[in-house]
Design a protein around this nucleic acid. Structure first.
Lengths: 100, 100
DNA sequence: CTACTTTTGACAAAATATGTCAAGATAAAA
DNA sequence: TTTTATCTTGACATATTTTGTCAAAAGTAG
């Protein structure tokens, strides 16, 4: 299963971009982008959207990867992780229903 | 659907405890507990476990409520919330499989 | 070796989370 | 209705986490 960072690195290399070049466009130091690609640091939501744009990746797909990774990271250590996800799903349905 | 705060408040009242009393046992100001019960502030994971203990609630159940609420809060605004949850589930399975 | 890219770690700044306190709102008792 | 106790709210302080910079080390190709 690919990480968000791996997806980004692959696509950056496909485009022939250096860390330095892509980082400049993101307005951050190359060190951070390196860490993001390697999974040492999390990107921000804004950076993910910019990256999708700059690398011609589908925004929604990359965002799903990114969000799911954050969620998994938050609860993977919990024995009850799966149950928490199930309840979260119901909660979200509930919230969306209520908003209409 | 009940919030974690509502569950806590109900149980505190069932036990006949004042905010001040329960807060003291949690080692925080009553103001914070009030906010937690009303959904103004998030509890910490540690506080949730202590609360389950002090209020005779099942640790796992309260923790599931709490975690699911945090997850839902994080992504409820996203159109792709549900898809992110699905992928998160797969990711968690993947992580757990890998660990063994 | 040299020149270039990437990685790493120490540190700084910014943002967020967590808490205290005191004053205001609410409600029940006298 | 005044008094008393509880709860709520908002301003502020502190602590923790996140996000970033920089420079040196490590890796890679000519």
């Amino acid at each position: 299963m690919k990480t968000t960072g791996e997806i980004i690195r692959e696509q950056r290399e496909k485009k022939g971009l250096l860390l330095r070049q892509l980082a400049a466009r993101l307005d951050i130091d190359a060190a951070i982008l390196s860490k993001i690609e390697r999974g040492d640091r999390k990107a921000t939501r804004e950076q993910i959207l910019k990256l999708a744009d700059l690398l011609d990746l589908k925004k929604d797909e990359l965002l799903i990867q990114y969000l799911s990774e954050n969620i998994a990271y938050d609860i993977a250590d919990e024995d009850i992780a799966k149950q928490a996800l199930k309840v979260a799903e119901k909660r979200i349905e509930y919230i969306k229903r209520k908003r209409k």
